[in-house]
Design a protein around this nucleic acid. Structure first.
Lengths: 353, 353
DNA sequence: GTGAAAGCGCTAACAC
DNA sequence: GTGTTAGCGCTTTCAC
């Protein structure tokens, strides 16, 4: 059983109030405790390994310094997100980690727990097919809960969103390919959710770049059910195979392929390897996201990265934490979403034509 | 401001105690509340979106259902660990995530916060050069804190440890290479910390397998300072280059190379690619860990994986959570560490000789 | 300078 | 059946 203030008070013959003040070096009203008292109490507290009960403190003050981090799933990249979040929350904060793996009722339960713990703010990374939007709206409005959403916006809810610049990702990528001399550029995505705003933006970016150049578009979006473990090697085999079939069936084959994320690109690399398609000689390949493997010399995937030296997920986490603490501190949100800038990184899988 | 029990009590003309009982469907002593009362109260509570204040509950009951998860850093693989942990903790638990990035004083602060929040258990993944061992001992003994340590043991502390079977990882790997006909097998590691028990075990496994076969050993351990971002592509360039120099300088070059983890193997793959060394024709390569990229067709790295279908980190997390909940539930720990079994996975980077 | 008292939200024991 | 009381550990206000 941890030491309490009144134990110290009893032992030392002071009142709990005095001990409380002494430990926190505070003065009651105008008058302060005698230096000696403070010394005695602090010394004893340290000896006993006293630690204030945060639960009691929070109950008394009706505040808290715990934020909730609610993720739809923990997959590749989550570690960077969390790293960004943890780096950016100042030391006073402590964070609950909740994960619901796409399970809607679990999502409600986790939110319930977080609210039960009286979190002072919420960071939410929702899955594409979030069915609990009303709950989030409720929490934001009724509880007046400071909240930041990641990589996705919630309709009808005035809450800041932090996300990568998806439009410019493909827009810049397509332009870069054009600059390398490519005209027949194919864009391929594998969609995991019904309303993937991300893919919509990607498609728009690609489309606009192609239309500006006045060239024919080659787009193909391929559905796949089940988000879980999509990032495992070989799990996108079928989809990738389909993409390459489309590519091969074109009378005049595209000279460049832009795929919706780097994992897909890795799979394409594998499939091309097996089919004997030479990259970049027969086909220039570009991914999106600059995942950690892409920069390995062995891979050298051309892709689109976050500006700066950090992974996009880390930056998203960092910005989200920054925004949330601002809101908690009562600073006004300017109403704008945070869209993180991107840059094209040309490596070994693309070449001039 | 969230709804409280007494607000509901006032509004409905009941006492707080009655409301409390009704909401939790409990009976006071022998007698139970009238069904009608319960209905009325529960209905109103639901309407108002009442959620019990967990802080107050915990204060009252002097218990908690929050576990602390303290990680030395968030890097590649952490997401799997956390996934395993979250999957395995039953729904009643909520978890604090703490990260100290190798910073010793930060580590103390995080522990302090966790203790302040009166966690009911602790999962700790310590960095190699943990300077705060005494603190952990203190917490385990003085606070009698249920605790599980991951991938590392703490001397002088009777706390369960969950880790991969490091000895057999290299032992099995070496045997497997021998079975493929290799005799000149080189083992290379890059060490990040002074007292890497893991590398010691790896070396022992390799050594024993070689000695059992009565063949000469080729071992090389290479130091590298700074753990941060070691897993980024290219960051091990120098070390990998050194390893290959050693390999090439052997009058009779080893036909197989076993490296300490898959990331190193990826780097070796890259370096060999650039130097024109054909894998597996000129050199069979084997990693350790079966990281997610290894199973990509494009890579096909032979390696050592956890038995079963999950990443090792996930299994470690799962076991750690299971153990911790057992201890929290008062079940006796049998005194044995959990060593998770491994298996060799042969893919494209190794061949028969 | 220090202590007594009230209260944060909730629950358990015991009255009525 | 339901209400009263006390207390979890802490802080704040206000006496003394």
């Amino acid at each position: 059983m941890p030491v309490t203030i009144s134990q110290i008070a009893d032992e030392l013959g002071f009142s709990p109030a005095t001990v409380s003040l002494a430990i926190r070096n505070k003065k009651a009203g105008k008058k302060s405790l005698s230096a000696e008292t403070v010394n005695i109490i602090q010394k004893r507290a340290a000896e006993l390994g006293y630690r204030p009960n945060t639960l009691a403190q929070n109950l008394t003050s009706n505040t808290s310094t715990s934020v909730g981090v609610l993720l739809s799933s923990l997959s590749f990249g989550s570690e960077s997100l969390l790293d960004g979040l943890k780096m950016s929350f100042s030391e006073g904060y402590t964070s609950f980690l909740s994960v619901y793996n796409g399970d809607i009722s679990r999502e409600r339960e986790e939110l319930d727990m977080l609210l039960g713990h009286r979190i002072c703010g919420l960071i939410a990374a929702l899955s594409g097919d979030c069915k609990n939007l009303d709950l989030y709206r409720y929490i934001a409005s009724k509880h007046n809960m400071p909240m930041v959403v990641i990589e996705r916006s919630i309709e009808g809810l005035d809450v800041p969103v932090v996300m990568a610049d998806h439009f410019n990702s493909t827009y810049f990528a397509t332009k870069a390919l054009q600059n390398l001399g490519h005209e027949r550029i194919m864009y391929a995505a594998v969609s995991f959710s019904v309303d993937s705003k991300m893919i919509t933006l990607h498609t728009q970016g690609y489309t606009q770049a192609m239309e500006e150049a006045g060239i024919r578009k080659y787009a193909s979006t391929n559905a796949r059910k089940g988000v879980k473990d999509w990032y495992k090697g070989g799990n996108l085999r079928k989809q990738v195979s389909d993409i390459l079939e489309v590519w091969m069936s074109e009378p005049k084959r595209p000279t460049a392929l832009l795929v919706d994320n780097d994992w897909l690109a890795y799979e394409v690399l594998g499939e091309c390897f097996e089919r004997g398609i030479k990259i970049p000689d027969q086909l220039s390949l570009m991914g999106l996201g600059d995942y950690v493997f892409s920069s390995f010399p062995y891979v050298g995937l051309s892709t689109v990265a976050a500006e700066g030296d950090y992974p996009m997920q880390t930056l998203i986490g960092r910005e989200a934490a920054r925004l949330l603490t601002d809101i908690i501190d009562g600073k006004d949100w300017n109403g704008k979403d945070v869209v993180l800038p991107v840059k094209v990184v040309l490596r070994a899988t693309t070449k001039k034509i």
